[in-house]
Amino acid sequence: MPSPCDPEFAPAGDVGAALMLIDSRLKAVHDDSGEAAPENRLLADRFTASLGPEEAKEVLDGVCTIMYMMVRWLRLAHEQHGKDVIEYVVPNLVASLRMMPRSVGPEVVPTMAGMVIAAGTGLSPNLWRGQYGQWTEAEMRPLEATAFLLAEHINRITDDPDFVTRMIAEALSGADHD
């Protein structure tokens, strides 16, 4: 019997816009000159501010879809080595989130960890989170940070700064062809 949090019941959202935001953050962090970071952040902030409520929900669902895809990739990679993704990824993620107190308050760290654990067990992160009510404003930056940290982790593992962006873009391209 499928769970109500099964990914097949989850809206995919605007994965393209979500990927653009995550990729923009990755590029800003890795910009050695430091010149693009403030401009990229301003553009991303303007983009998100221009979204209406339904569009914002679509991007939020898109971020959750990408998180699910990244954790699924991590789960498969860890299983090839006989390791549990939750055991190896979640503690590092939580430690990283706790080092970001200005962006991620301690009260939302359990929610972000729960979303990753949900994805690691094959559940939809946004449907899992939705069981507990509407998203809050206080969860937006932590969600962005969680998606960024997962992408950064995968890019480090693969030693490819564009791996996640390419993986998601290829999945989107394949979905368009289907």
Rank of each mutant, 00 (worst) to 15 (best):
V29I: 09
L26M: 15
P38L: 06
I157N: 09
F148N: 12
P101C: 05
E54V: 06
P91W: 10
E35F: 10
I86D: 01
M70K: 08
W128T: 00
A145E: 15
N92M: 09
L21M: 14
P53R: 11
R166H: 12
H153W: 05
D159C: 12
C64L: 09
P91C: 04
V85K: 01
L150G: 04
G133C: 04
V71F: 01
L42F: 13
T111S: 15
L143A: 08
S96H: 08
S50C: 07
V108C: 01
P2H: 02
Q80N: 14
P125D: 04
F148E: 14
V89Q: 00
R156S: 10
L51W: 00
L93A: 07
D160T: 04
L74F: 12
A175V: 03
L123M: 15
T158F: 11
L42S: 13
L150N: 05
P106D: 15
G34D: 12
A113E: 07
E54Q: 08
A145Q: 15
P161G: 05
S103C: 11
M167I: 03
F148K: 10
S96M: 06
R98E: 15
I117V: 15
C5W: 00
D31F: 07
D160W: 06
I117K: 03
N40D: 09
V104H: 02
S24F: 04
H153F: 05
S124G: 00
Q131P: 01
P7R: 10
F148C: 12
T65V: 03
A171E: 15
D176C: 06
T136Y: 02
L76S: 14
V89T: 12
L93F: 08
A18D: 09
P91Y: 09
E137M: 04
A37L: 11
P11N: 14
V94G: 11
E144G: 08
L149V: 06
M115G: 14
K57W: 07
L93R: 06
L43A: 15
E137P: 01
M112V: 04
G34F: 11
L149I: 08
R102Q: 12
W128C: 00
I168Y: 10
A36Y: 13
M112I: 04
E8L: 11
W135E: 06
A171I: 12
L43E: 13
A36C: 12
G120W: 03
A95F: 09
D31V: 07
G62L: 02
G105R: 03
S103G: 13
H30V: 04
A56F: 10
W128I: 00
R141E: 08
N40M: 11
R102I: 06
G105M: 01
